[in-house]
Structures are given as structure tokens and as C-alpha cells.
């Protein structure tokens, strides 16, 4: 579902959820705003097919990590707003810890050149 754009970074499996939760950690956003935010925050480093966000959001909703509600955007359009739940915050914290450990370990290995 996630396709890597030309000359762009590959989004690691399982990291999209953390990315979405992180994006929502600043406050409720609708789907398009999430997509735009990720695009901007990563300087468009990841080229994700924009549609791919939505099934992922629905899965987070089903797992109770986010809640959704219809609302109206600043431009007056109806949109579905997502909000992080308590469970979502916990999940985000644990996802971040895992990510940092992963990055640190990779960095150590790659810097020293030892397998």
C-alpha cells in the first residue's frame, strides 16, 4: 500500500501508525490535514500514496487508539476529525521508545562498522 517515490526514503513497516499517532498528539486533525502535516513535516521525504492513510486511521480507530467525529474544517468543508485517546497516547509513547532503541542500535552498528 505504501509506495516509495523516486529517490525517496522507504517507510519502514509498522512506522506509519506511530507517524499518525505522533501527528495527532498535538490535537485533533481531519484526514487531509494529517496527510498534509506528514507531507510538510517530513519535507516530502516519504512519498506515500495519500489514500493509504485512511485504512490505517480506521484500524487505529478500531483499536481504540483514536476517536473520530464529523466536523467542519476552517475552509467550511465537512471532514472526519481524529483525536488521540488515552490508549493512543500510551501506544504512541511505547512506539516512540521502540523507535528510539531501534535507531540507536542501528546507529551504533552502522557507525562502528561492526555487524
Amino acid at each position: 500500500m505504501l509506495r516509495v517515490g523516486d529517490g525517496s526514503l522507504e517507510l519502514l513497516k509498522g512506522t506509519l501508525d506511530v507517524l499518525l499517532l505522533k501527528t495527532l498528539s498535538h490535537g485533533p486533525l481531519h484526514g487531509y490535514a494529517i496527510s498534509r502535516s506528514i507531507r510538510r513535516a517530513t519535507d516530502e521525504a516519504f512519498t506515500v500514496e495519500e489514500g493509504a492513510l485512511y485504512p490505517a486511521l480506521r484500524r487505529l480507530e478500531k483499536r481504540g487508539l483514536v476517536e473520530a467525529e464529523w466536523g467542519v474544517t476552517d475552509t467550511g468543508r465537512e471532514a472526519r476529525f481524529y483525536r488521540l485517546t488515552g490508549a493512543g497516547e500510551t501506544e504512541l509513547a511505547s512506539g516512540l521508545r521502540t523507535w528510539h532503541r531501534y535507531v540507536a542500535a542501528m546507529a551504533r552498528v552502522l557507525a562502528d562498522g561492526h555487524p
Binding site: G31, Y32, S35, G51, Y54, T75, R77, A79, R80
Partner: peptide
């Protein structure tokens, strides 16, 4: 679902 996706496309 249809409304949500349509909302995205319209804003994009």
C-alpha cells in the same frame, strides 16, 4: 467512508 475520501480529494 465515501464522504471522508471525497472530503480529502476536494481539499487536495
Amino acid at each position: 467512508v465515501r464522504r471522508e475520501l471525497e472530503s480529502h480529494l476536494a481539499q487536495r
